[in-house]
Design a protein around this nucleic acid. Structure first.
Lengths: 246, 246
DNA sequence: CGTCCTATTGAAATTCTTCAACACTCGTGG
DNA sequence: CCACGAGTGTTGAAGAATTTCAATAGGACG
C-alpha cells in the first residue's frame, strides 16, 4: 500500500492528531501531503455526539465539514406528514458534507454515538481547489454511495419484506467486515440501528421488520443474542433468501 | 455564461462535429480546450440506436464511453428470477460509463431511440488524467445522480402508488423543462417510457401504474392525448398528490 | 418498583398484485 | 383496402402481502 509507505517515511512530519486517524487511509485526508495535513490540522476539532443527534442543522458550527472517525451516521429524507426514509448510511472514514454545492434536503443524524473530526468549510474548499487528488477521493466516495443507493433501489422497489431484511443484514456484514465474507464460522454483527431505523431503511414498518427477523431466526439462518446484535449462522442461505425469497 | 463567451472567441478552432453539440455546454466536453476537443474528436464516432437496445454489453465496441446526444437511457438492475428495477434515467448530455472502475452490475438500455457520441475508453481516461476540470464535471454529474437516486429511494420506500406516479410525472416535468416549472399554461409531456418501464421505475406492476394514471386523469390533474404523451393540467395539485397522496 | 423506550405478537383492514379478459394501435401481407 | 397478429395498455375480481391498530413483554435507569 503506497500511502502506508509514505506514512513510514514521513511519520515525523504528520500532525499528531492525524497519526492514528483512519481517515488518513481510506478517507480523503489520504490525498494530502504532510504539509497540507499540518495546515488542515490547525483548524480541526474533534467532537463526540450522542445517538439521534441531528448533525446537519444543530451542529454547533453550521459552516463545517467532517470526517467520521467512529460510529454510524444515517442520511434521511422526511415527508411533510412525517413519513421518513433513510437514504444512506455512512461509516468511518466517510466524509460528511458536500463542498461547493448545498446538498439537497437531506438530514444527517447520528445512528449510534459517533466521533467526528470537523473542519471549516472554507479550509476544505481551499485545499480541494489546490489538490485534484482530494476531489478524486471525494468523487470515489460519491460513486460508492451511488452504487449503494442503486443496490438499495432494487431492494426497496422489488424485494419482499423477508428479502429486504436479509439484504439489510448482508449489507451490514459486508460493511463491517469486508474480508470475513467467506469465513466458515458464524459471524456476529452488532446492529447499529434500532428497529425503527431499520424499518425506515427498508421502507417497512417496525412490526414487519420484527416479524421477518423472527422469521429468519425460526428458519435457523440467524441467531439472536441480546437485542443489539445478531449472529449470522448460515450466510449462504441468507444470500439465497435475500435474492429469491426462500 | 463563460463557456458561451469562449465559444464565441474560439469558434473557428472547435471541431465541426462538436460545434453544435449539447455535450459541450452541460456535458463533460465543456471542460475541454479547443485543442483537446480536436484530439478527442478524431476518435469520436456518432451512432444511433433503437429503443430497447442493450448499450452496456452489445455495444459494437465494448471499450467505449459515450455522451448522450438525444433520447433517454435507462439503467437497470435485474434479479435472478427476472424482477427488475430501473435505478436511473439519463438524458442528454449525460456521460455514459465509468472511467477507471467497472461500474457495478448495471445494465444500460435505450429507453427511446437514442443518439450517442462515443469515444475509446483509453482516450477519455488519458484526457481525464490531464484535466481535473473534466473529472470535476463528471463528479458533478454523479452528485446529481446521487441526489436523484436518494429522492427516488424516498419514493420507492415510502410513497403510495398514486404518489409514486405523480412523483414520476413531476420528475419528467423538471427534467424535460426545468424552466417552465412555474408556468400557468398546461404542460405537455411526451412519455419517454412505456408502462412496463414506468412500473420498473416505480417498483409497481403495469396494472397499478395504469390504474393510477387513470386515477389522476379522473381527478382532472392530468389529461391524455395519444398514449405517448400526457398533459399536466394542474401542477400544484399534482405536487400535493405526490407528497401527501390526496 | 415504576416508568419510558423498545421490541414482539395477534387480528383486522388496506393496498397492491395476480390472474384473466378485453381493447387499441400499428405494420404487414393477403 | 381489409384482416391479422404482435405489442401495448386498460379494466375487473380474487388473492396475497404488508400495514394498522391494539395489547403485551422485556430492559435500562432513576
Amino acid at each position: 500500500m503506497s500511502s502506508q509507505k509514505r506514512q513510514d517515511i514521513h511519520n515525523s512530519e504528520i500532525p499528531l492528531v492525524c497519526l492514528s486517524c483512519e481517515a488518513r487511509h481510506g478517507g480523503i485526508c489520504g490525498a494530502l501531503e504532510p504539509s497540507q495535513l499540518l495546515e488542515l490540522s490547525k483548524h480541526t476539532t474533534r467532537t463526540a455526539h450522542e445517538r439521534d443527534k441531528d448533525l446537519s442543522v444543530s451542529q454547533s458550527d453550521p459552516d463545517v465539514f467532517s470526517n467520521i472517525l467512529g460510529g454510524v451516521v444515517k442520511l434521511m429524507k422526511i415527508m411533510p406528514d412525517g413519513r421518513q426514509q433513510i437514504v444512506g448510511l455512512q461509516f468511518a472514514p466517510d466524509f460528511l458534507g458536500r463542498p461547493f454545492s448545498d446538498s439537497s434536503d437531506l438530514i444527517a443524524e447520528a445512528a449510534t454515538d459517533i466521533r467526528l473530526c470537523s473542519f471549516p468549510k472554507r479550509v476544505i474548499e481551499k485545499i480541494l481547489k489546490e489538490t485534484p487528488e482530494m476531489e478524486h477521493r471525494l468523487h470515489e466516495q460519491h460513486m460508492r454511495e451511488l452504487d449503494e443507493a442503486r443496490d438499495w433501489m432494487l431492494t426497496l422497489g422489488r424485494k419482499t419484506a423477508i428479502e429486504k431484511v436479509a439484504s439489510f443484514i448482508l449489507m451490514l456484514v459486508s460493511h463491517i467486515d469486508p474480508e470475513k465474507g467467506s469465513e466458515i464460522a458464524d459471524i456476529e454483527i452488532s446492529l447499529p440501528l434500532k428497529r425503527a431505523d431499520i424499518a425506515d431503511y427498508l421502507g417497512l414498518t417496525i412490526e414487519t421488520v420484527s416479524r421477518q427477523v423472527t422469521n429468519l431466526r425460526k428458519k435457523g439462518v440467524i441467531a439472536i443474542n441480546d437485542r443489539k446484535s445478531i449472529i449470522v449462522v448460515n450466510k449462504d442461505r441468507l444470500e439465497t433468501i435475500a435474492n429469491q425469497g426462500d
